[in-house]
Design a protein around this nucleic acid. Structure first.
Length: 855
RNA sequence: GCGGGCGUGGCGGAAUGGUAGACGCACCGGACUUAAAAUCCGUAGGGCCGCAAGGCCUGUGUGAGUUCAAGUCUCACCGCCCGCACCA
């Protein structure tokens, strides 16, 4: 018998599926819908193992649900705007070969390459719905949405401090600033105020938080991360009167500790600080000093508290004669609350550190219930627990909660302050000084200000002839792009040359898939039919940004009338990474796996030499560590099915998986094993042949078959792919053990293993299905159903414990009454011996499970 | 620092509070073969006793606890991983 030729078979079935548009799905169907989506890829040029794992999981769910009778939408697209394309164009220029490469060509070439790689995986995707976010046909609609959001005041323009790279002349995202320097140029990043476009995500702060509770099919971890990111805290804003006649407003979650205040502190960036600095040289120096502190993690952690006494004083809100010094402090952030605080050292660690350094009073005002207020002292640790108020005049004796309420009541009565809810979440700064992104459809007019571009002008198209020899944004210096007329007054005007953050592109693509040909940004009916996505799958690295933005955007679509829902993803699954061993030569240089040879004694050398190789731990595959394995080379070697199988085996899907050649080899062997089982079998009855009463080995095989059907069905529904794989092995072993029963029972078992493995190894399944005499395709075959009567067993073997230790086992009929089970257990030879004639005090019988004898 | 997660054979990992180690990988023994590969069969947590069948002890990071019964629940500790971070 010939070995299974995976590549040949895979190409054949991929053509067969294509030919009958097997995965093209219609928007109206009487079947229940199921929308399966994996986070779409950035077209970097090559798929990597992470993609393979992600898309294989989604594909298994899509094929499984399809077989179960769902109308399954499983689309694919390209998150195609972004920096790498611009960098490629720029590198091309710098290398002196300005051969006309531009981001568009680079991107579409990558898409073409990656599409063919994804197709080689045999994914059950409706390719008719494919689009790239850099298609004018897509960003045209995004521009329309931008205008709609603008009308609803969900978009605005405002001054903001940004990370400015003075060498590359561009804004950098926070994560592109490494140790205070631009990741590309290495230049020290400047803080710069620029007018930027924002999405008003904070309008939904509370809703985005509250709705997390209802996302019960999301990982707890992700919900928690979003919760912390939104960072809701309840407190008060209130004002202090200053000795210069002014006021300063502070925010506090602990107004109850107001009588423990010993200073008021302003952020170095606070407007009042800047005002004072105009006439205070030393303060100017201090501010400069504060700004020198880097943004690096380690620096913040070890940063010393720095303060500067402005000489001003602030009057205590409840005692005008009580004057507190007004300091400028480096640990007060302008971006949170009001940029000013009152310091209560006894009950806040930062305030305490600050007070100790600058010799300010530390007065405890909250005392734990079990402590004596007279002896309670603060050493070097602030007390943040519950307790009773002390040293606090009219608050004395109250609980923390009651004191907060009392302070709030009094301050509000005096009109000095209000209870507020403060969020950590800030509005989404979405403009980028980049050429390869969605142009922001706004126009700057000298007379009329900033006005929206008319919807009829959309798309505002990116020009192809961008000049990447210039620093900064090529759109700024393009001869025509920028120049236009004002839609209001008709005078000369300029276009906005900022483009949108690529996270905008990925914030609504799932809605576009519902009907990618719609004349409108989205087809309302199609969106309301398909959304929410029933199963979304992607990496944990998007836990906050992408998933939060998409949740916001869906609310925006709702507010602008494009959709009737708020939450885009009903269920979320975050899969683990693909790891690989890492290799270094004696100089520490990284080596590709292909250049390393493993010797039988366990050592490793550089292929074709005796130079030793240090084998490092398994870490995430990355180009810099060279521990990557190209999926296509593995598919060429073992076929897509074996690689898909590998990606689902062993490791639970949410955990990292370690890629190894040996593992892939093992999967290939299993592919062959199933192929052999089906092709070596002799003379089976035709499909659909009836199965009569069976017993013995045949009954065993039927039971194994139906148990596997039940188990795999359950495991796939719960995304426990690794267990489904194990069940498939178990059934395969059973088939091999009982193969000699032949006939309709063996046919039933073989058909079951083929159908159960089909979502994971779809090509092999088609080959085997055909060999089993079927004229139809597996993709058109319904999911098998388990016969409950066969899943249950007649007899159960249960353990008998004596005082919790296993001392024997008995086999009884299923659902044997308790008394009988007890008798059988006590009659067991081993149990009697172990009891040594002792009389049991108690016998616990858990039917069908266990017997525990207590002496 | 705060928040969250995880610790089970040589390895990846199974296990509604009920026979720990399913299934796979690797290893070892055997069959087939001139030989190798491939394939098939078999043993296997550790320790002790036994020619053997089998039996006993021990065992899920450490220590306590709850329970007839704990990998699973509770508390404390140790280790590793992830997220956030001067958020008032």
């Amino acid at each position: 018998m010939a070995r299974y030729n995976a590549r040949e078979s895979e190409e054949r079935w991929q053509r067969a599926w294509d030919a009958r548009n097997a995965f093209v799905v219609s928007n109206d169907s009487s079947r229940p819908k199921c929308y399966v989506l994996e986070m779409f890829p950035y077209p970097s040029g090559r798929i990597h193992m992470g993609h393979v794992r992600n898309y294989t999981m989604g594909d298994v769910i899509a094929r499984f649900r399809r077989a179960q009778g769902f109308n399954v939408l499983h689309p694919m697209g390209w998150d195609a705007f972004g920096l790498p394309a611009e960098n490629a164009a720029r590198d091309n220029v710098n290398a002196g070969k300005n051969s006309g490469i531009n981001p568009r060509e680079w991107t579409y070439a990558n898409i073409a390459a990656m599409r063919s790689e994804l197709k080689a995986l045999g994914l059950a995707i409706d390719w008719s719905r494919e689009f790239a976010t850099c298609d004018a046909e897509y960003y045209k609609h995004q521009q329309k949405l931008f205008l709609d959001f603008h009308k609803q005041d969900l978009v605005y323009r405002s001054e903001a401090e940004v990370n400015w790279d003075p060498v590359d002349m561009t804004v950098l995202a926070n994560e592109q600033v490494i140790d205070g320097r631009g990741w590309r140029s290495g230049a020290v990043v400047e803080r710069k105020k620029l007018a930027q476009w924002f999405f008003r995500i904070t309008r939904y702060s509370d809703d985005l938080l509250a709705a997390l509770d209802r996302l019960d099919k999301w990982p707890e971890k992700v919900r928690l991360m979003q919760k912390n990111w939104i960072g809701r805290s309840e407190g008060m804003r209130f004002a202090f009167d200053l000795s210069n006649g002014g006021k300063v407003e502070v925010f506090s979650t602990r107004p109850d500790t107001l009588f423990g205040a010993s200073f008021v502190a302003l952020s170095p960036d606070h407007p009042l600080t800047e005002e004072l600095a105009k006439t205070d040289v030393k303060l100017r120096d201090f501010i400069a000093e504060c700004r020198k502190t880097g943004t690096a993690e380690a620096e913040i952690e070890t940063a010393e508290k720095l303060g500067y006494d402005t000489g001003l004083t602030a009057a205590h809100p409840f005692d005008p004669n009580w004057k507190l010094p007004v300091m400028v402090a480096n640990f007060v952030l302008m971006g949170y609350g009001t940029g000013a605080i009152f310091g209560c050292p006894a009950h806040d660690q930062r305030d305490l550190d600050f007070a100790r350094k600058y010799k300010l009073p530390v007065l405890p005002v909250v005392v734990p219930e079990d402590a004596d207020p007279k002896d309670f002292e603060i050493d070097n640790e602030a007390y943040v627990g519950p307790g009773r108020l002390a040293n606090s005049r009219f608050l004395d004796g109250l609980s923390v909660e009651a004191a907060k309420a009392e302070v709030a009541k009094r301050l509000e009565a005096e009109g000095r302050g209000t209870r507020t809810v403060q969020y950590r979440l800030r509005d989404w700064l979405a403009s980028r000084q980049r050429a390869w992104g969605c142009p922001i459809p706004m126009i700057h007019c000298g007379k009329c200000g900033v006005v929206p571009a008319p919807a009829s002008d959309l798309p505002i198209r990116l020009p192809d002839d961008l000049d990447f020899r210039v620093k900064g944004n090529p759109l700024d210096v393009h001869p025509t792009f920028k120049h236009t007329t004002c839609p209001v007054c008709g005078g000369k005007a300029t276009r906005e040359t900022d483009t949108l953050d690529t996270f905008v592109d990925s914030s609504w693509y799932f809605a576009r898939f519902a009907d990618p040909t719609s004349e409108d940004p989205v087809n309302r009916d199609a969106v309301n039919y398909w959304l929410p996505v029933d199963q979304y799958i992607g990496g944990i690295e998007h836990a906050i940004l992408h998933l939060l933005y998409a949740r916001f955007f869906t609310r925006g679509l709702h507010a602008t009338g494009w959709a009737a829902l708020d939450e885009p993803f009903a269920a979320l699954f975050t899969q683990g990474m693909v790891l690989h061993e890492s290799y270094q030569d004696e100089t520490g240089s990284w080596l590709y796996p292909d250049d390393v040879e493993k010797r039988p004694d366990g050592s490793a050398v550089i292929k074709g030499s005796d130079r030793p190789v240090t084998v490092g731990p398994s870490i995430r595959m990355s180009k810099s560590k060279k521990n990557t394995v190209a999926p296509m080379s593995m598919i060429d070697l073992y076929g897509a099915d074996a690689i898909r199988w590998f990606m689902l085996s062993d490791s639970p899907p949410e955990r990292d998986v370690d890629w190894s050649e040996a593992g892939a080899e093992g999967c290939w062997k299993f592919v062959q094993r199933i192929h052999r089982l089906v092709f070596e079998v002799e003379a089976l009855p035709p499909p659909g042949a009836p199965i009569g009463e069976v017993s013995g080995s045949a009954l065993e095989l039927r039971r194994a078959t139906h148990r596997a059907i039940a188990a795999v069905t359950e495991d796939l529904a719960a995304l426990r792919f690794n267990r489904a794989v194990a069940q498939a092995y178990t059934l395969t072993n059973a088939i091999q053990t009982h193969a000699d029963v032949g006939g309709a029972v063996l046919r039933e078992a073989l058909e079951a293993i083929v159908l159960l493995a089909a979502p994971m190894m779809p090509h092999l399944a088609e080959t085997c299905w055909e060999a089993l005499g079927h004229k139809t395709l597996v993709v058109d075959t319904p999911w098998p159903k388990a016969d409950e009567a066969l899943v249950r067993t007649d007899n159960v073997t249960i353990a008998v414990q004596i005082n919790g230790k296993r001392r024997g086992e008995i086999t009884v009929a299923l659902d044997t009454p308790e008394a009988e089970t007890r008798a059988a257990a006590l009659a067991d030879e081993g149990v009697r011996r172990a009891l040594e004639g002792k009389t049991p005090k108690r016998v616990i019988v858990v039917p069908n499970r266990i017997v525990n004898v207590v002496t």
